[in-house]
């Protein structure tokens, strides 16, 4: 398996960040794991690296409830900068919220591949990465 993609976590929960990082590292798939505490930090990073294909994330696990800029606000901004991005970014919304309105709202955004309810098991991370890699192979 080629380590040719960047995994990204946007979540204000340190422990969550820690556990996901550990999971991905143990799977030994990704080139790197990026972690941001809120949407604004993540957005800032993407703006700074807008044409730096190498460092931009390929898969993002996006939390909803975060300070400064929450997951939906991040999506609003992401859709605005999307045309300028040089590569396709897969986004999963991951939240402990079981609120129907959040789930519906997430499904209405076409840029979001799926809504995952926390906690995220290791197997789920694995399948997300596998789906991504299959898609990539098909397009290549």
């Amino acid at each position: 398996m080629k380590k040719n993609f960047n995994f990204c976590i946007v979540d204000d929960d340190d422990i969550y960040q820690f556990t996901i990082k550990k999971t991905i590292q143990s799977l030994n798939y990704a080139k790197s794991v990026l972690a941001f505490s809120d949407g604004e930090e993540a957005l800032q990073f993407m703006m700074d690296n807008i044409s730096n294909e190498e460092d931009l994330p390929d898969i993002i696990l996006l939390d909803i409830n975060m300070p400064i800029m929450d997951g939906f606000q991040f999506m609003d901004e992401f859709i605005k900068i999307k045309p300028k991005l040089s590569k396709k970014i897969t986004i999963y919304m991951a939240s402990s919220s079981v609120d129907e309105t959040d789930i519906k709202k997430a499904h209405q955004i076409s840029e979001i591949s799926d809504y995952i309810i926390k906690p995220i098991k290791q197997g789920k991370i694995k399948s997300i990465i596998e789906v991504y890699l299959n898609d990539k192979e098909e397009t290549e």
């Binding site: 422990i15 969550y16 556990t19 550990k22 999971t23 939240s95 402990s96 919220s97 906690p119 995220i120």
Partner: peptide, 25 residues
């Protein structure tokens, strides 16, 4: 309250689960 339990209680509990997995491994 649902919102609170959903976010403020489920999140740390799910973290405990994840940590449990990490600890075992």
């Amino acid at each position: 309250f649902a919102q609170i339990t959903s976010h403020n209680l489920r999140a740390p509990v799910s973290n405990l689960n994840s940590l449990m997995g990490f600890y075992k491994m």
